[in-house]
């Protein structure tokens, strides 16, 4: 088990969110979309220029810029 940032996840890698380290309106929005401690996510792909990143969560697909994904810490299997 290791904690990494979403930016460093591989394609199709799965993980569980451990922390969302941003407050305010952006933090609220990220949480509202389901990205909160305990949520299972997997990286579905990245845009041609490696940014944004597409994440699979709660049966839907969500895209985030790397700058925003950097607030999200994930626990992954080694």
């Amino acid at each position: 088990m290791a904690k990494i940032l979403v930016r460093n996840m591989q394609k199709h890698q799965q993980g569980v969110v451990t922390a969302v380290k941003v407050g305010g309106i952006l933090g609220q929005r990220i949480r509202e979309m389901g990205l909160m401690p305990g949520s299972k996510i997997s990286v579905q792909g990245r845009a041609p220029l490696y940014d944004p990143v597409a994440i699979r969560i709660m049966g839907g697909t969500l895209t985030l810029r790397n700058a925003e994904a950097d607030y999200i810490e994930v626990e992954v299997q080694d």
């Binding site: 952006l26 929005r29 944004p52 697909t61 969500l62 895209t63 810029r65």
Partner: peptide, 11 residues
């Protein structure tokens, strides 16, 4: 600031 890009890719 750039508006955060929290965009859903619908099926």
């Amino acid at each position: 600031e750039a508006t955060p890009f929290v965009l859903e890719l619908p099926p």
